[in-house]
Design a protein around this nucleic acid. Structure first.
Lengths: 115, 115
DNA sequence: GGCATATTCAACCGGATGGTTGACGATTTC
DNA sequence: GAAATCGTCAACCATCCGGTTGAATATGCC
């Protein structure tokens, strides 16, 4: 652990840079989920998803709590606030346009993909 | 070029994940700059900065225009809007707190580092 | 023309990242 | 206690990333 503690923004943005991880976050918007259930829709191994979840947890974007043999994953939206605030500094954004958000979420999820 | 066009959010967030690149964006908030001038405050080669700028341009976060032998770099804040909008979906953020933004910018630049 | 300046290109390097598979520890269930 | 389930660990692999150096390609100046 001699690593010199990188800027939290580094890890948050890096975590968000992967589409699988963004999809996971979107899923967790709905509800808390077990690791196995998170992995279910993806065409990759459970171990890979487990790693993605570790990255998200490292960034503070989720927390994981083990109850019994099941590990529950919970969205931690506050971690996004720092990044969001940072970005707002550029361009004097208008207050966020929720219609645009809807459109983007649709793009994210893929049209006709009813996740 | 058989690469299947990654989600723009991938490249934007990946670009933002590097502290050098975020610092560059912050510099460009002030004014457009030539590549050499962008590189000046950093303890790394000009070629490295040139690559960073290419990443930012690829993500659409800046544009570069060559006038004479000088290539000018210009912030393109609109590219951040998509990412910002995506993030707003999580956590029903309050409208952004500009005081918090100031504090974060200070953290970014480093206290007592008068860049 | 010839030299200095601005920027990129190309090759290279070490380390991180995203994925795999198979073994393993922990927990529940029968 | 034995078997099934949940999740991680460890080793491995290919690729990407951030950096270097040195040569190459403009362009501007005299």
């Amino acid at each position: 652990m001699t690593a010199p503690a990188p800027d939290p923004l580094d890890t948050v943005f890096a975590a968000l840079a992967d589409p699988t991880r963004r999809a996971i976050l979107t899923m967790l918007l709905e509800d808390d989920m077990a690791v196995t259930d998170v992995a279910e829709p993806f065409a990759m191994s459970l171990a890979a998803i487990s790693k993605h979840l570790a990255v998200l947890a490292e960034a503070g974007l989720i927390t994981q709590e083990k109850r019994g043999r099941v590990k529950w994953c919970k969205l931690e939206p506050d971690a996004l606030r720092a990044a969001s605030v940072w970005m707002q500094g550029f361009g004097q954004f208008d207050p966020v346009d929720l219609d645009a958000f809807e459109r983007f979420l649709e793009t994210e999820l893929g049209p006709g993909d009813g996740v």
